[in-house]
């Protein structure tokens, strides 16, 4: 496969995954601010949302106040924010358009329809109901893209790069949430705060659609260290760092098998997965959750560079 084609496929998948993540942040945050005033954490919920997107500095340079409207504009629409939902969909579409031959027509139509609809029907001044529909629509687009990939793509290198793009972006997103909220996630038996913290924790779970999953896995009330466990080490949880790396290792192995060649990516992804599997929550908290997550984000980033070197720029 052409290196450029792999590059476009990989980034299409990454940006669609990112669009989904941004939509979830916006969703969780809208929910948090509709809490009763007595839990008045509402005012900093918007700051938390911006921090979760990783665009705090950029946000400050674009707006002079932080509220529902500016945050919504930033996350959903602002062309000056490279990770805004509309930018993500546009970049995903541009990448897909350059390599239409490598995607199935079903995948292309999902992306192209999304882009056409976005151009035609989105407005900055949506009310809450409309923004809720918009968020649901964005999530639906990503799900349709994934579904189309799963159902229609040949299981060859193009498919593997699609999966790798999605998994590496998803790992980055989960890690970012943990990085922003690490101060809320405390080791066993250490609790601070009250109802507000509870809402913040459940918000983390909502951001990754894991509240129900949490109850199924742990069958007990929401505890911060278990949230950390779910998002970092739990192999059943599709957004956990461990799950993402299982997917990455699997697809890098398939590529290596197809090409008859191992390389940097197989080594890096394998090492990170080994590290995750060897960890338990005690050791993670001992190292320090913040340090652990920061270290992970760095390794995940290095893997991205490795992909570029090994496959995308040859």
């Amino acid at each position: 496969m052409l290196s450029r084609t792999a590059d476009n496929i990989y980034w299409s998948a990454r940006y669609l995954e990112r669009a989904d993540f941004q939509a979830r942040i916006l969703d969780a945050c809208t929910r948090l601010t509709s809490l009763p005033a007595s839990y008045a954490g509402a005012s900093n919920a918007w700051e938390g949302a911006i921090a979760s997107t990783g665009g705090a500095n950029l946000f400050r340079s674009l707006y002079d106040r932080i509220d529902e409207w500016t945050v919504r504009d930033f996350i959903a629409f602002n062309p000056g924010n490279p990770s805004s939902i509309s930018n993500c969909l546009m970049i995903a579409r541009n990448n897909a358009r350059a390599v239409r031959t490598a995607l199935t027509s079903e995948m292309w139509e999902v992306i192209n329809d999304a882009w056409l609809e976005l151009k035609g029907s989105t407005r900055q001044d949506m009310d809450r109901d409309e923004i809720a529909r918009f968020i649901a629509w964005v999530k639906g687009v990503t799900q349709m893209f994934e579904g189309a990939a799963h159902r229609t793509m040949l299981r060859n290198d193009a498919y593997y790069f699609t999966r790798i793009g999605g998994a590496i972006e998803r790992a980055d997103n989960t890690a970012r949430i943990l990085d922003v909220k690490y101060h809320l996630l405390l080791p066993v038996n250490e609790t601070v705060g009250g109802g507000l913290d509870y809402f913040q924790w459940t918000t983390i779970l909502r951001e990754v659609s894991a509240l129900t999953a949490y109850h199924w896995v742990y069958r007990e009330s929401v505890k911060p260290w278990l949230i950390a466990d779910l998002l970092i080490l739990n192999r059943q949880m599709p957004r956990s760092l461990a799950s993402c790396y299982e997917a990455l290792v699997r697809h890098f192995d398939l590529i290596a098998e197809t090409y008859g060649q191992q390389g940097e990516c197989q080594r890096l992804a394998g090492a990170t997965l080994t590290h995750l599997r060897a960890s338990c929550m005690e050791s993670v908290f001992q190292e320090g959750l913040h340090e652990f997550v920061t270290g992970f984000i760095g390794r995940n980033h290095a893997l991205g560079d490795g992909i570029a070197r090994q496959y995308l720029l040859s």
Binding site: M1, L2, S3, R4, T5, Y259, Q261, Y311, S314
Partner: peptide, 21 residues
């Protein structure tokens, strides 16, 4: 393959395309 100029290289008067392999 649909290639652009930057996907092709010439070595020893022979044309190659840059691929993931």
């Amino acid at each position: 393959e649909l290639v652009e100029g930057r996907d092709l290289i010439v070595r020893d008067d022979t044309v190659y395309m840059r691929t993931t392999e």
